[in-house]
Design a binder for these strands. Structure first.
Ligand SMILES: [Mn+2]
Ligand SMILES: [Mn+2]
Ligand SMILES: [Mn+2]
Ligand SMILES: [Mn+2]
Lengths: 224, 224
DNA sequence: ACTTTATTTTAGTTATGCCTAAAAATAAGA
DNA sequence: TCTTATTTTTAGGCATAACTAAAATAAAGT
């Protein structure tokens, strides 16, 4: 008789699955990428990948990279849902700022039950995106579509309805907020510097300048 | 040179300290008591007690029971504060009922930071007691005083202002709630059965009967 | 006091999940 | 292609925290 015992999913495994999902959206992730992302040594990662394969969370051949199975992706998205709902709660109801949120959510995501998650979802009003526009996976594991055009790619005179700020970095998010650059706001491209990629933008009637890097992080939909 | 490295307090250690606090309020706790309370085998408990002593969380001599040091009690109360604030949040804001609350809090209490705890405390309006009247330790580790006279000890005609329901049991709490017996309510002793200890009580103008056991769980302060 | 019972500790194992050092495989450069 | 550098895996260890079986101690019963 085959041992068909379903082992519990540990905190460590959950974090690996999420890391693989983040690092290898479509392609496959390398051991090193994951070691970097998780701040764990490469040998430890290598060993864990073997265990993840045994439990059918990933496709993995030594030396050839790793990607999630359907089962693995389901778990990754379930964790991501918890993470982003928790972040939303911390920011909107407990007065957290961007520097503190992620670290707290990184721990809490492993401790909350499905019941908690769905009650929190209701409490928050079933948000589709977190406060900086990251899509919150649904209970069924679907990712709500999110306009994704980088502001950096607009033509002069065009306006972007901001949907998302593609950064986890406290300083970046705080800085953008200080410029009123937030999801649902509208941002117009006024002028582009010939060299260096600096862009002049208008938001709320005021004009500012953004680096090319920042302009790449601002995503949304071009309007009229 | 003495190794003076302060080790992190694990989830397991936290639960042991809380269990010792609960089991041995003033006296000392036996290995067996703790094994029962924690649902862990006696040998495991015995071994952990040794480690707790090494780290100065407890006074412990083999075969002679265990009690918390000041350091141990501080940690126990810090955890209890987290536990009770979390339970309050679950009950008052997420629509949990008594059957679900404790299990969720038992896990979350280990995952939340001090920052989270104090922000939650603010969010909840700095409650001194949780919804069934258990005192919430303060940030400084003080337990707010809580009237503790059992209803069972009243004389005929006396009234108890309910402060606390001394039970963790879902069925008990749900049943009492169904009778409108809750903290801050007033409960009068109408009559006592000569045998068996049944008591007739009046609350909100209605009359009911309570067993002696239940009457012992209802604590508060005798008024006028 | 002596014997039986109950409690508690010791001994030995197991499972996770991390680490460093060394070996092996792959990728890059001459 | 051959050599060097990088990446990844293997080997060996350690810490935590649980378990069962057996031994030791303490408590109760006669
Ligand atoms: Mn995050
Ligand atoms: Mn995490
Ligand atoms: Mn509780
Ligand atoms: Mn706990």
């Amino acid at each position: 008789m085959p041992k068909n015992k379903t082992k519990p999913i540990s905190t460590a495994i959950e974090d690996y699955l999420k890391a693989i999902w983040l690092v290898a959206q479509d392609a496959s992730a390398s051991t090193n990428d994951l070691a970097l992302q998780l701040k764990i040594s490469a040998p430890s990662v290598s060993s864990m990948l073997g265990k993840l394969r045994e439990q059918n969370f990933v496709h993995y051949e030594p030396y050839r990279g790793v990607r999630l199975t359907e089962k693995g992706e389901r778990e990754a998205l379930r964790l991501l849902r918890r993470h982003r709902l928790i972040e939303t709660f911390l920011l909107e109801h407990l007065g957290y700022d961007w520097g503190e949120v992620h670290e707290e959510a990184e721990k809490l995501e492993h401790a909350v039950s499905d019941t908690f998650t769905e009650r929190l979802d209701t409490f928050l009003g079933h948000p589709s995106h977190d406060p900086h526009g990251d899509p919150i996976p649904t209970l069924k594991g679907k990712l709500p579509v999110t306009p994704n055009t980088p502001f950096a790619e607009l033509s002069i005179g065009e306006t972007l309805k901001i949907a998302r700020l593609m950064s986890q970095d406290k300083d970046v998010l705080t800085y953008l907020k200080s410029l009123a650059i937030e999801p649902s706001k509208e941002l117009q491209l006024v002028k582009r510097e010939p060299v260096g990629g600096l862009v002049h933008v208008e938001i709320d009637g005021a004009e500012t300048v953004l680096s090319k890097e920042l302009a790449m992080l601002i995503r949304g939909e071009v309007i009229v």
